[in-house]
Design a protein around this nucleic acid. Sequence first.
DNA 1: ACTAATTTGTAAACGGCCATGACGAAATAG
DNA 2: CTATTTCGTCATGGCCGTTTACAAATTAGT
Lengths: 402, 402
Amino acid sequence: MTAPLHEGHPTGPGRALPDTQQGMRRRNLARVMHTVGAEGPLSRASVASRIGLTRAAVSTLVDELIRSGLLEELGPERPGRVGRPGSALAVSGRGPAGIGAEVGVDHLAVCAVDLRGEVRARAVRHGTNRGRAPGPVLEELASLLRLVVADAEREGLWPAGLAIAVPGLVAPDARTVVRAPNLGWHDLDLGALLPAELPLTVDNEANFGGLAELWLGEGTPRDFLHVSAEIGIGAAVVVDGRLLRGTRGFAGELGHVPVQPDGPECACGGRGCLEQYAGEEAVLRAAGLEPGEDRVGLLAGRAAAGDESVRQALRDAGTAFGVALTGAVNLLDPESVVLGGALAALAPWLLPSLREELARRTAGPACAVSVSRLGPEGPLLGAAHSVVRTVLDDPAAVAERG
Amino acid sequence: MTAPLHEGHPTGPGRALPDTQQGMRRRNLARVMHTVGAEGPLSRASVASRIGLTRAAVSTLVDELIRSGLLEELGPERPGRVGRPGSALAVSGRGPAGIGAEVGVDHLAVCAVDLRGEVRARAVRHGTNRGRAPGPVLEELASLLRLVVADAEREGLWPAGLAIAVPGLVAPDARTVVRAPNLGWHDLDLGALLPAELPLTVDNEANFGGLAELWLGEGTPRDFLHVSAEIGIGAAVVVDGRLLRGTRGFAGELGHVPVQPDGPECACGGRGCLEQYAGEEAVLRAAGLEPGEDRVGLLAGRAAAGDESVRQALRDAGTAFGVALTGAVNLLDPESVVLGGALAALAPWLLPSLREELARRTAGPACAVSVSRLGPEGPLLGAAHSVVRTVLDDPAAVAERG
DNA sequence: ACTAATTTGTAAACGGCCATGACGAAATAG
DNA sequence: CTATTTCGTCATGGCCGTTTACAAATTAGT
């Protein structure tokens, strides 16, 4: 009876359910969950009017969701208007939880997020993973995982799935890391190396960062570019609330957009790619610094301290970003561009020249550029929330397991 | 009872129907129509297995569609396999038709397409519309329209809607031409100037060209860039079978992607935009030609005749295209890039340098670049088919009117 | 304080729709 | 000529949202 969830990469609300009565029921259950989850405590009547069903129908849907423990009744609303007050419904703080994990270059992190979207447990281990063998790293990750799951279970949660963000390219099976240069990993099936108790999804951390921005960002934008720079310079392209992956899963390679067609050669085969001007290495070199351990922290620190050569290097990088983003904005006409991940920390010195360049090249009002408020937490939260979304997208599937 | 179709711009299959039993029924009717339409004559049983319903359910759906005149029974299939042969079903060649129209710079065209996708009537008037007042042009269009509708009706068709392709920017209401520089039109509500007998949709001709490629192109690609150059250089971005419009409807402005950041100034405010190197004017200038009436034809003619300066100009334009498309391909990872519209005629001289540049800047196999087989017909066919799609997407809505 | 009006949630009857299972019809295979 | 397979249809049943009615709980008006 379970639908094929977790197939391929996580995407937006899955319209994969068949157009049969049971499929309809499941979609309506999902719509109730989403509505209550997104718009706070709501009465049955308001849910009904929002999703276009009758109160009676919503009543039965809600009954089923309450019996499954996915929704809970908070009791009568405070009556402000005329008429009988409704009974407030809220997404349950117990039951299934999404487990998110991140394998960063300099840390490991795991967290548990409940259906309400709140982080209920977390564990972090700092220390570089650059060049370490995958085995020990994943064993360490598994121990953090056990810790977080135990914490979550103490709070009445049970793990509904695990999503892992990695700094590299992931195969379409959503399990295999094709290559993660900064870790030195390649062709690694994480599913085979981790305890297989949970449905597993692996994805690029830039993608999870973009999804986090989509689900948790300010103003709930549905069309934007989320630019981050952990490995190279990547952008998550979100169109109409869906992450654009491309036919081969290579979409968002902003780092290899040509900025100066006859510029220096790039490893990708091209010339004058954005990465040659705004990549980590290029900026460090332009600033006259040696590549060390915490490169981004080093840059941010020097810039904050007033180091003019670092500031100039970042200004130039911002200008290059502006050129590349002009192309992207002309092509996609997004609502906004959001700087996330490591770029968020450098934003104060990147933004002015970036915005200036973008505005200079745009007729009319330029596309808004902002900084993600999620900062470096994005990918981890996005991963955990992606699991939560699968539950919200098909509550009936999880009710059977609970 | 009619659903709000024709709202806003035409898009992919509309998932706007409510999750109620009637909505389900309507979606299933649509799925039967699409399946039969796309995969030729099919028996009830094959339709059932394809869309995941039972034979009994499909039988009732088909009955309804036959009664409405949207489907017709061709009789028993030739039995090749064991078992009782099925009765072949096909989309009807009578009934509703989509009327497409194109207001080009040098011509007016109208055609009628039946539900099978075949052009059943057409009318064209050649002659420039550059700078003519909108009134007379639209009157002429209306007369062509009457001609085509009369022809179509003689064949048992009735017009289900009208879609007009214009060389310019169209407001989100899908009726108002914001500006069409080559026509000299601005802020023109076509809905108010044409007989309002039919549901009307107006859209950019580049968008309709892209949709035509999506619906009628070879290999039914779902992720591609359709590049055309009627007004400036525009690209229709198709992602997962849907046309990407952008938040303001400005998506696909490939012409203003920076190719040389410190190149010549452009009207858009930028510098070194693709249009400065591969735009019509730029190429004519580089080739040492005067802008005349049929500019593209002139270029193609000279190039075919062996004019080396024209060929060199087109080669250089192709290289500039290659640079801009490298950025686009890196960002979107499409299945292919298709050259359509006027570019199709110039493709022989553009393609080699374009492909070379794209390949040179790509690690691994470069994105495929092909030429649309629809050529200059694309926008007109796309317009007509967009109406057909709205019928296929909700057959129940039209059955009431028939 | 009392009545009228309004809104909420529930229950029962209803109708629509797809699934199930059985059956006759029409072909092939042996 | 019989067994088998497949197709289309019919009757039955179960699921699900709607409709209608009603009790409960609040506000507005007198």
